[in-house]
Structures are given as C-alpha cells and as structure tokens.
Amino acid sequence: MKKIALFLMAVTFIACNKNDDGQTPLNTLVDIRFQHSFDEQLVDNTTFNAIQYNNAFGSELSLTKLRYLITNVTFTNQDGIATKVRDYQLVDVTQNTGMFISGTSLPPGTYTLKMRFGFAEPENNSGIYPDLNAASWSVPDMLGGGYHYMQLEGRFIDAGNETSIYAYHTISAVQNPGPDNIREDTSIEIDLGTINIENTTTTIKVNMNISEWFKNPNVWNLNTLNGMLMGNYAAQILMQENGQNVFSLESVRSVQ
C-alpha cells in the first residue's frame, strides 16, 4: 500500500512539474472541416434529392448519396517535420458524419497541408480496416479489392427527358476484372498549400467542388457513363483526371 501511495505521489509530482515549467510552446487547436459545393452552391444533406444542379455537359442532376475517403492528413512544418493527424477518415455527407478532423494540436507556425483522396496502393488492402468493412466500403477482390475512394450517386434528366439514375463510384482502376485483375493506383494527392497557424484556435475549411467531377478536363456525359463504372478502367482514369482540382482550401480562420 505504501508503495502505491509513493508511486502515486511520484506520478502526480512529475505531472505537476511539467505543467509548471512553462518552457514548451503552447500548442494551438486546429480543426479541419470538409465542406461541399456544386460550383457556387453549398451542398449538404439537406440539399440532397432535388434535381437542381447543372453539370458541364448540361445535364440537370441531383445528389442522393456522397461519401468519400480522405487519407494521410499531414501537416509539415518548415523544418520538414511531418505530423500525420489522420491515417484515414470516411467523410459521409449523406449521414453528416466524419465532416471534421478535430483534436489536432500543433505549435503555431507555417505548415504545408496535404492529404490524399482514397488509399494509396500500399494501404489499400482488402478487409484490414474493421470500421470501413462494417460501413460496406469494400471493393470486391474481383474488382481489384481494397476500398472505395468515393460513392457519388443521384438522379439526372437523361437525353430522352426522363429521370434516370447514376452511381459515380471511384476506386483503384482495374484492368481485366476477375480473378486475374490488374490494379492501378488512382488515388489523388490533395495539396492544400501553405497554412499559417497562429496562437488561437484555427479552423481550416476544405471544399470539394462536386461539379469538377463532371467537368475538367473531361466533360462527363451521364447518358453514357452512369453506372457499372467500377469495372470500367477507362472511366476510372477519366475520373482520376477530373478529380485533380476537386479539392481546394476554402479558408483558414483563427478564433480570437
């Protein structure tokens, strides 16, 4: 008993010492928020379901589901020291979950902020992330295995003026679907540039412009490319090209 008491005393003492010395610089709390837009229009799950957006091809469309995977969220300071704040996070706009990365604490300073859309090849192995398995985020092995990058779904007015459906799913592009498929890493690096973190709580907003998926450089024709895109290698490459400018730094705000 005495020993335990001594041990507790020691622990408390050490803890107090650290608090008192005041040498380590105070860290700043940093939040990353994911926000979504269709060009200028802000998108969230309350704006889902209504056919109200126009893509570059000229199709009117709605969103019924949007979720995607962000990985390797990393701040790098000017000495090149990297702090990875998330290995991966499923941003689920439909359920309004995973929309923040909070709880990061960093010394004030200048950083570059990078993340990745989807798992890069070495991390994209089937079945290894229990939460993503339970979220039905997996890609069947015959389609290359691993995990989805994005599920974007909705309705559009087709060439015959009828309401039609689309499911724009991005994955690691795969050739020769089946037991002998060949997979190609089509995840996308997101470089959000340089960010100054001052000594007050900072919120970084990252925007996904959904319109970009249908626009740049490949104008997307939903009449021909609306489903069965996972096993469509050429479509996955077009999607990866269009994904290059989907994400941008919206704002960095310090709360006084």
């Binding site: 089937s126 079945g127 398995n133 339970a134 979220a135 039905s136 997996s138 069947p140 092995d141 015959m142 389609l143 679907p177 069965m228 996972m230 096993g231």
Partner: peptide
C-alpha cells in the same frame, strides 16, 4: 458469390455486404 459481387451481373454487394462485411447488410 461471383454473380453476387460482379458489377455486370448481380451487383448485390453495395447494399447487402460482401466477404469483408459479414453482417451481410448495410
């Protein structure tokens, strides 16, 4: 199983689970 998973055939896995989601439902 192949029919169940194959996008060009059953394509059932998005809603009903797959070998890595043994709940067999979303």
């Amino acid at each position: 199983l192949a029919v169940f998973l194959d996008e060009d055939r059953g394509d059932c896995f998005h809603c009903h689970g797959s070998p890595t989601n043994p709940l067999w439902t979303d």
